[in-house]
Design a protein around this nucleic acid. Structure first.
Lengths: 179, 179
DNA sequence: GACTCTATTTATAATTG
DNA sequence: TCAATTATAAATAGAGT
C-alpha cells in the first residue's frame, strides 16, 4: 500500500523507520481491535518502538490477564506448535551457523576447533560482552553518556534476513496448518 | 476491504466468525511480521481463537523474552495499572524458558551431561544475564548492543557477583530517581 | 471446512504544506 | 520536524468450488 511497493527489510534511515513505525503501529492496533470485537476474542499485542518505547493493546481483557492466560496454558497446548517452530528454526540456524563457521575458519587460515573449543570461545565472547555491559551500567550510575552504536556486520544482517524469511515461512505454514 | 463495508461488532454467525478470524488472524500476523522487520523491533502477539485455541507471533526474539521485557519494565512505563503478580509471572516465564531449552537440547540428539552440553548451559545462563543487563541499559536510553552467546566457566561466580552489584546500584538509583 | 476469485474497502509510501 | 493529502498497494467480504 502506498506509492510504491515496499520491500520487507529493515528501513535503514532512522527518521523513515520511526515514521513507518508510528503509522504501521496504529494500523496494527486498529486491526487487532477490529479482530477482537468482530470475533470476540482475547488478544494481546506488545511492541517496543525503535527507540525502545512500549506500545501495547489488548481488547476486552487486561493485557496482564491475556499474558496470564498464555503463561498458564497447560504444557501440551503450547508444546507441539512451539517445538515444531523451534526445531525448524534450530535446523535453519544450525545450517547458517555451519556456513558462517566455515567462513570464519577459512578466513582464520584454518584453525581447527573441537566443538568444546568453539563453545568455550562463545563463552569467552559472552563474558566479554557481559563485562562491557556491566561497565556501562557502572558508568551510567555515575553519569549518563551517549554510547557509540555497534557496527553492523553484513554477514550478520544477511543471516538475520534468512532467519526472518524462515520464520515467515514457518508462520505461514503454521497458520495454514491451524486454520 | 471486501464487497461491503463491515460494521465493527461481534459477528453472531459462528461459521462466519471463525472464517473471519482465520483470515484476519493471518493478516494481522503478516502485518506484525512486516513491522518487526521494517522497523527492527521486538513484538509479541497473542490471540485466542473463538474456540479458545492459541495463536501467537513474535519476531526476532522468543515470545517469552518479549513478555519478559514487558513485565520487567519499571511500573510507570506500563500504563499504570493494577499489575498481576510480577514475581509469579517471572517464575513461570523462567520455567517456560528452561523447558524449551531442555526441549532443544533433547532434540539436538541425546545424551545428557556431556561437557558440550554443560558449556551450552553456561552459555544459556549467560545469555539470560546479558539480556537482563541489556534491559537495564535500555532503561537508561543507552544504545543497544549486539548480543551473542555468553559466560565464563571459571569466573562465573565472580562475574555474577559483579553483575548483581551493578544491578543493585542501578535499582538504587532508580528508586531515588522516582522518589 | 479450506481454496480461489474479484469487487471493494482499507492501509499506507511518498509528497505536500 | 509534524500533519494532511493523494496515488497506489494490500487486505478482505462474499460468492463460487
Amino acid at each position: 500500500m502506498g506509492r510504491v511497493k515496499l520491500q520487507i527489510r529493515r528501513i535503514e534511515n532512522n527518521t523513515n523507520r520511526q515514521v513507518t513505525f508510528s503509522k504501521r503501529r496504529n494500523g496494527l492496533i486498529k486491526k487487532a481491535y477490529e479482530l477482537s470485537v468482530l470475533c470476540d476474542i482475547d488478544i494481546a499485542l506488545i511492541m517496543f518502538s525503535p527507540s525502545g518505547r512500549l506500545s501495547h493493546f489488548s481488547g476486552r481483557r487486561r493485557i496482564e490477564d491475556v499474558i496470564g492466560r498464555y503463561v498458564n496454558l497447560p504444557e501440551h497446548d503450547r508444546a507441539g506448535r512451539v517445538n515444531m517452530n523451534k526445531e525448524y528454526l534450530m535446523r535453519t540456524l544450525n545450517k547458517l551457523q555451519c556456513e558462517s563457521d566455515m567462513a570464519i575458519q577459512l578466513s582464520n587460515g584454518g584453525v581447527a576447533n573441537t566443538k568444546a573449543e568453539k563453545l568455550q570461545q562463545e563463552i569467552s565472547m559472552c563474558q566479554q560482552q557481559l563485562q562491557i555491559c556491566v561497565e556501562r551500567l557502572r558508568y551510567f550510575d555515575a553519569a549518563p553518556m551517549s554510547i557509540s552504536p555497534c557496527t553492523p556486520s553484513t554477514d550478520l544482517e544477511s543471516c538475520e534476513k534468512l532467519f526472518m524469511d524462515s520464520l515467515a515461512l514457518v508462520c505461514d505454514k503454521k497458520s495454514k496448518h491451524e486454520s
